[in-house]
Amino acid sequence: MDMDENSIKTIMFGFTIAVGGGGPAIAIGLLTGKALEAIGRNPEALNDIRTNMILGIAFAESIAIYSLVAAFIIKFV
């Protein structure tokens, strides 16, 4: 197949963010599930659990952001 550079850039743009978004999505889902379990077992610690959950979700989401930025760089730079 003879593809020109623009086609490859477009395809890899979509592929990068699709693959790079899957891991963090699973991570955030697991995190939130565990946090909900913890809240169910100890409703008094709601504020502590919520703060730590947001912290963990921010870390996981930043990996998805890295892949998004890499995808943008592939397509537009």
């Binding site: 921010a58 930043s62 890295y66 998004l68 930025v69 943008f72």
Partner: peptide, 16 residues
Amino acid sequence: ISFGFRLFGNIFAGEV
């Protein structure tokens, strides 16, 4: 890197 790209990625992607 993490601080910079997390903030940049979220806001720039939102703009796009």
